[in-house]
């Protein structure tokens, strides 16, 4: 027998809002990939503008969770559902901030660089991680969540490899090349950090369904 219809409805709505936020942030990454590849300033500006809606989404999820806690005193799996919703929203908000940082890089880079292919390699694992996180959250799929954490290692390897190459570029070339390499380092650091936060979300999904805290990667 299932009771507490209002509570069930609220939990379902919360789940949908978090799923929607994953989709919104994911869409920002599809767009920033394009903006970075084409060094499209107009697109970069529009992505910064969209960030406020994502911040607002996080606040609204937090408010919703607080109201559920006040009204329904959730425990056990219900408590994990509301706590992880809040934690995932916070990770997503941070992941979305990186899109703003990278957008600013695009806007402030005046000269044409030849780094777009290097940047693009980061998006293969990253976009796939987003897709899997979305599916793992929607379908309560712990195995899939764990796969996301493994993919993050791929992203970390890419980062280590390209840090070395950018440092070498900075050493070997003139001032403007060195500056370009230094600024590009920030971009890939942001992409690497996005992967770390997606891994946090994997951990939250595991905690939600298994009641176990694990540290992945």
């Amino acid at each position: 027998m299932r009771e507490r219809i209002k509570f069930e409805t609220a939990l379902l709505q919360l789940h949908e809002e978090v799923a929607q936020m994953i989709a919104d942030v994911s869409a920002q990454y599809v767009q920033i990939r394009k903006a970075l590849f084409e060094m499209d300033r107009t697109l970069a500006e529009s992505l910064i503008a969209k960030d406020e809606a994502i911040n607002q989404k996080e606040r609204s999820i937090n408010e919703f969770v607080i109201s559920i806690i006040i009204k329904e005193s959730p425990v056990a799996s219900d408590l994990r559902a509301v706590i992880t919703a809040m934690k995932i929203a916070s990770d997503l908000e941070r992941i979305a901030d990186y899109v703003c940082n990278i957008s600013k890089y695009i806007i402030h880079t005046k000269v044409k660089t030849d780094l777009e292919n290097m940047f693009d390699t980061f998006f293969e694992p990253l976009i796939s991680m987003f897709e899997r996180i979305a599916q793992a959250y929607a379908e309560e799929n712990v195995e899939l969540a764990l796969e996301v954490a493994h993919q993050d290692e791929e992203l970390d390897d890419l980062f280590d490899l390209n840090v070395k190459s950018l440092i070498n570029t900075a050493k070997d070339y003139n001032d403007s090349k060195a500056e370009e390499a230094a600024r590009a380092l920030f971009v890939i650091k942001n992409l690497e950090r996005a992967g770390d936060h997606l891994t946090n979300i994997s951990e939250s999904i595991v905690f939600l369904h298994k009641a176990k805290r694990i540290t992945l990667n």
Binding site: S77, D78, L79, A211
Partner: peptide
């Protein structure tokens, strides 16, 4: 209250039964 072992306990404390 965090993670009971039995589903019956979970259903009771979460008010589902």
């Amino acid at each position: 209250f965090k993670s009971p072992k039995l589903k019956q306990t979970e259903d009771y404390i979460t008010g589902r039964f």
